[in-house]
């Protein structure tokens, strides 16, 4: 199929299948999946700038489908999502500025590659340690089986004491998040988590859900299911902003995004529905390979010199 905007010839089946796989991952883990979609579009012959912009547009559509499904399951905290969107957009702008500074210094590729590898490996290692420890604990053992429905949203974490200490910090203004079961938390902590996520999004590319979703669980104390749904809601806003910005710069082939999304729409629903059959620590344990895939892609590009 010929796509006139980017001038690329790509099989629609390839695009729909890629969208389907990323849709499942996104719906289940609350990530955009750009670490797979970007290289997949690049492999199909799309220029890098189009791969980044088009992927963002596809992420918007996939997240809308997943959020509608998560909302029906009670997994979306709209208040938290709206606050986080502000912090994410601010962070993304700062991250993009940092990239421009590194470009001028002439060492952008090396710095971004090393930072991303360290971040990806740290997240995976930490989540592997925490989820295993939680699952082996007496409270975690009670969550090991496949639990369907609202019961599965009650979350335990081996990192819980640190999370509770963060929640006790009284930095005005304090807000409550009834949908997430949090009585009071500093607004600044939420904005900080969102800002850091946005910073990595602007710095490393993609939606940075692999940082934001774990941060919401471990730093803010949001139950895993709600973190997945709310992160997706927040991604709709921040990725729409990114899509608009890239489209104005001529980096979005919306036809490719629409075709990819036909597969993602089904995948995102499967992923979202599947979350209700797994307890929080199990979702977190299954999340561990995702940042490792991102790290492997970066290491490959560093060694081979290819830009996927």
């Amino acid at each position: 199929m010929f796509f006139p905007i980017s001038g690329a010839h790509i099989s629609p089946i390839y695009l729909a299948t890629t969208g389907f796989i990323i849709g499942i991952l996104g719906g289940f883990f609350g990530v955009g999946g750009s670490f797979i979609a970007g290289p997949a579009l690049r492999l199909a012959g799309l220029d890098w700038n189009f791969a980044v912009g088009t992927d963002l547009a596809h992420i918007v559509g996939k997240s809308v489908v997943a959020v509608r499904r998560h909302r029906a399951l009670g997994n979306v905290d709209l208040r938290l999502g709206l606050i986080m969107a502000m912090g994410t957009i601010a962070g993304a702008e700062v991250g993009a500025q940092a990239i421009q500074m590194l470009k001028r210094a002439g060492n952008v590729n090396l710095v971004v590659s090393i930072v991303s590898i360290v971040v990806y490996l740290s997240i995976s290692t930490f989540m592997l340690w925490e989820s295993r420890k939680t699952l082996l604990s007496p409270k975690g053992r009670s969550q090991r089986g496949a639990v369907k429905g609202a019961k599965s949203k009650k979350d335990h974490s081996a990192f819980g004491p640190v999370t509770r200490a963060i929640q006790r910090l009284k930095i005005w203004p304090m807000i409550s998040l009834p949908a997430s079961g949090i009585r009071a938390i500093s607004l600044w902590m939420i904005l900080l988590v969102a800002f850091v996520g946005g910073l990595f999004s602007g710095f490393l590319g993609g939606g940075a859900g692999y940082i934001r979703m774990p941060s919401m669980v471990y730093v803010l104390g949001i139950p895993t299911h709600l973190a997945v749904g709310t992160d997706l809601f927040e991604i709709i806003i921040s990725a729409s902003y990114g899509t608009f910005s890239h489209a104005v710069k001529g980096n979005v082939d919306i036809l490719i995004a629409l075709v990819m999304h036909t597969g993602a729409a089904i995948g995102a629903q499967i992923g979202a529905i599947s979350t209700q059959y797994f307890a929080g620590p199990k979702i977190r344990l299954a999340f561990v390979p995702l940042p490792l895939i991102g790290a492997a892609i970066v290491i490959y590009t560093m060694i081979s010199g290819h830009k996927l």
Binding site: V64, V65, R68, I254
Partner: peptide, 15 residues
Amino acid sequence: ALAILLIIGQAVLLE
């Protein structure tokens, strides 16, 4: 602007 409307519209429709 149309790109965002199209992808959101398609998402709602397909869902």
